[in-house]
């Protein structure tokens, strides 16, 4: 294969595969599909999304409907996961609860991601004093133990599911900010960033147009660690009574309202407990697979 060249340029510049290229996203999805824990984790994530989206169509009973006649029924044909102390169907509640998991995962991670990227890039682009101030702020936030930070934010805003989400999100900001700053500083020294400077690009264009895309893979990888943690933290807050409030079928909140019946009816705790365990496991597996697939050594 040779390339057309204008007179004056002599040699053809070598050959490149001319077959049509698949886009990056499709390539990544295909690799995920071939990855073992990617398949399992992906399936888990898909199930959570389906439950969250179509929960109200799937549930056999209304998740909030109290039925004192059928309280604390063990798992059986009519109630696959059994019923709780108020006779509510546990399967329905678990399915319904998925939407809170998703909500918490997406919103709190988005807050952490957005805030962290903003602060990190501000520090790098501003440099000097801006950098100093931003990073001192981040250091102060990181100096607080994670739980204490959460409690402080919730104390300020009052307990609710929204508060828990916001708190978990805010608590995640300094981690992202640190990562973004570190990655951006090392990318900024690369020659291709210099090349943009030579062409006349300003700080804003370089930061958003060149540096941000370069650190995106690292951010995705970090998110794959952070998101399961965020979900778990929010559940823990609900369990402590600081997040979602009963009778909301949030899994953490379900655990706490039923835990005194554990001795007589194990399933009231098993249903939401397993739901939390399996979804966190699924998210982690999916995250692992994503990291493998995005790792430059594998591409």
């Amino acid at each position: 294969m040779t390339h057309q060249t204008t007179p004056g340029t002599l040699a053809p510049a070598g050959t490149v595969d001319h077959r049509p290229r698949r886009s990056g996203l499709i390539r990544i999805l295909r690799r995920l599909a071939r990855h073992r824990s990617g398949r399992i984790g992906g399936a888990a994530v898909l199930v959570i999304i389906l439950m969250a989206a179509f929960g109200s169509l799937l549930v056999p009973y209304a998740p909030l409907k109290i039925d004192m006649a059928h309280r604390l029924l063990p798992p059986g044909a009519s109630h696959w996961f059994g019923t709780d102390e108020l006779g509510r169907d546990l399967l329905s509640r678990v399915i319904f609860g998925a939407r809170y998991l998703l909500l918490v995962g997406v919103y709190s991670t988005a807050i952490a991601f957005g805030g962290g990227v903003l602060l990190g890039l501000l520090a790098v682009a501003g440099g000097g004093w801006t950098d100093m101030l931003v990073m001192r702020l981040v250091d102060i936030m990181l100096a607080f133990p994670y739980v204490l930070l959460l409690l402080a934010i919730i104390a300020a805003l009052g307990p609710s599911l929204t508060t828990a989400m916001v708190a978990v999100g805010i608590a995640g900001i300094p981690g992202y900010a640190r990562l973004v700053r570190g990655e951006a500083l090392s990318v900024r020294e690369r020659e291709y960033v210099d090349a943009m400077r030579v062409l006349g690009a300003g700080t804003l264009r370089i930061t958003l147009g060149t540096i941000l895309p370069s650190i995106l893979p690292a951010l995705v990888i970090y998110t794959s660690y952070v998101m399961p943690l965020a979900v778990l933290s929010a559940s823990a807050l609900s369990f402590l009574g600081l997040g979602a409030q009963p009778p909301l079928p949030e899994w953490g909140a379900m655990l706490v309202s039923s835990r005194s019946f554990l001795a007589t009816a194990w399933w009231v705790v098993a249903a939401p407990g397993m739901a939390i365990f399996l979804s966190i496991l699924g998210l982690n597996l999916f995250g692992n697979a994503l990291r493998d697939v995005l790792d430059p050594k594998h591409s």
Partner: peptide, 9 residues
């Protein structure tokens, strides 16, 4: 004198 052409893919 460059060697004409290029390495086969």
């Amino acid at each position: 004198d460059a060697i004409p052409g290029s390495v086969p893919p």
